[in-house]
Write a protein that binds this DNA or RNA. Structure first.
Ligand SMILES: [Zn+2]
Ligand SMILES: [Zn+2]
Ligand SMILES: [Zn+2]
Ligand SMILES: [Zn+2]
Lengths: 151, 151
DNA sequence: TAGTTAATTGAAAATAATTTTCATTTAGCA
DNA sequence: TGCTAAATGAAAATTATTTTCAATTAACTA
């Protein structure tokens, strides 16, 4: 479950941002897709429902949504800057299929031991972390097995 | 300690690549810097010693070196596509200072429990992971403290 | 060591990604 | 219903990356 429309609207408003149809449209697209989407892909989809929207607005909207933590940026695998809807409240990470790009969330990263050790050893004050696993999703594994069997 | 020049040359040659002065120069710059460098920054430095080198060659060289695992790509923090020398043989990760960009390596990530759990729950075949911590390095922490004290 | 050849290079052009500028429009509020 | 600051879209500007192609060169062979 993602944030509700209302919750999102309230967060935007409280941060001094207006709720515009364009911003709604971008949010809708991202929350409807389970995959991560590049700015260009988001633009394309939004554009179908909202032909007058500009790519610039998509970029600006993404910056705001990411800044507010409503969406998250995904890095692994080729293209930088893709976006995913953020699950509410909870810190989480992604499992990304290197074949089809499917994204699965997980929440219990439990890096606190590692974090403490590193902070101590490197005299770092750790503020955050980026953790992503890559591999093959269930479907892609199946597909590969079938291919192999067919040979 | 990074790979020796010879080791690197041998890896390149075994993969069918030639050892050119340009490739040497790019490797030297990356291995001499402890920070991660963008393609543009690498180009700038290489260019000083090697004025006739083109940015295109830098891009092509980076692609090859990354493909062979001799350097690694760093993602966090603003600009995508920065490169760091890879420490030999061992799997490792980075601590990145969000203030000055300093990079510190660490090796013992020990994500195997998490990995197994995720593989089981999500039916994923996990092939790799991306883990980076961000925070403040020793020096930047000091600097901040001094600033605070001065107020 | 000279000759051969496929890989590599650099310059320029092409393409793609992102940001800036600015005149016009609009959401949110009184 | 106005008012106003924020947001928008179009176009231009900037930045990042890739492609193309003729000239050069590293590595191998005779
Ligand atoms: Zn898949
Ligand atoms: Zn985490
Ligand atoms: Zn620092
Ligand atoms: Zn690891």
């Amino acid at each position: 479950m993602t944030f509700t429309q209302n919750k999102i609207a309230s967060i935007l408003r409280h941060s001094g941002y207006k709720i515009t149809p364009q911003r709604r449209a971008v949010l809708n697209i991202i929350s409807q897709s389970h995959d991560h989407l590049t700015p260009a892909a988001i633009y394309e989809k939004v554009h179908q429902q909202h032909p007058r929207i500009g790519l610039v607005t998509v970029y600006r909207t993404l910056d705001i949504l990411a800044e507010l933590g409503l969406i998250c940026e995904v890095h692994s695998g080729g293209s930088c800057r893709s976006y995913l809807m953020r699950r509410p409240a909870e810190h989480h990470h992604h499992l990304i299929c290197s074949d089809c790009g499917a994204v699965i969330d997980f929440t219990d990263c439990d890096l606190s031991n590692l974090e403490q050790r590193l902070a101590r050893e490197a005299h770092f004050e750790i503020k955050g972390h980026l953790l992503e696993f890559t591999g093959l999703c269930r479907d892609c594994r199946k597909r590969m097995k079938q291919k192999k069997a067919a040979r």
